[in-house]
Computed example of a mutant assay.
Amino acid sequence: MIIDALVFDKDGTLFDFASTWGAFGRIALERLSEGDTQRAAELGHVIGFDFAEERYRPDSVVIAGTVDEIAHALTPHLPGIAQKQIVETLNHASAAAIQMPAVPLAPFLEEMRKAGLKLGVATNDAEAPALQHLESVGIRDHFDFVAGYDSGHGFKPGPGQLLAFAKHVDVEPARIAMVGDSLHDLEAGRAAGMVTIGVLTGMAAIETLEPFADVVLPNIGYIPGWLSQN
Rank of each mutant, 00 (worst) to 15 (best):
E69M: 07
I70H: 03
I86Q: 01
E88M: 08
T89K: 03
Q85W: 03
L90C: 06
P104W: 06
A95D: 11
T89D: 05
T66P: 00
I70C: 05
V67C: 02
H92G: 07
T66E: 00
L74V: 11
A71T: 05
A106R: 13
P107R: 06
I98Q: 13
V87C: 05
H72K: 11
P107E: 02
P104C: 06
A95N: 09
K84N: 10
P107T: 02
E88G: 03
V87D: 00
A73P: 03
P76L: 13
I98W: 04
H92M: 12
E88N: 10
T75W: 06
T66Y: 00
I98P: 02
P76E: 12
Q85A: 14
Q83E: 15
P101D: 07
L74C: 09
M100F: 12
H92I: 15
H72T: 15
I81H: 07
T66G: 01
Q99W: 04
I81K: 14
L90E: 03
H92L: 15
I70K: 04
N91T: 05
A82P: 02
I70A: 07
V67W: 01
L74R: 05
I98K: 09
P79L: 08
S94F: 11
Q85P: 02
E69K: 03
I70E: 04
V103R: 13
A73M: 10
L90V: 10
A93P: 05
Q85F: 02
N91A: 08
Q83A: 04
T75G: 01
A95L: 12
F108R: 04
V87K: 01
V87F: 00
I86K: 00
I86H: 00
H72I: 07
A106F: 11
T75E: 10
L74S: 06
P104A: 11
A96N: 08
T75D: 02
Q85R: 11
S94Y: 13
A102W: 03
A73Q: 09
V67S: 01
A106T: 13
P79F: 09
P101C: 11
A106G: 09
T75F: 02
I86C: 01
H92W: 08
G80S: 12
P76V: 14
E69P: 01
L105M: 07
A96E: 15
P107N: 04
E88T: 11
A73H: 09
T66S: 05
I70D: 03
A93E: 05
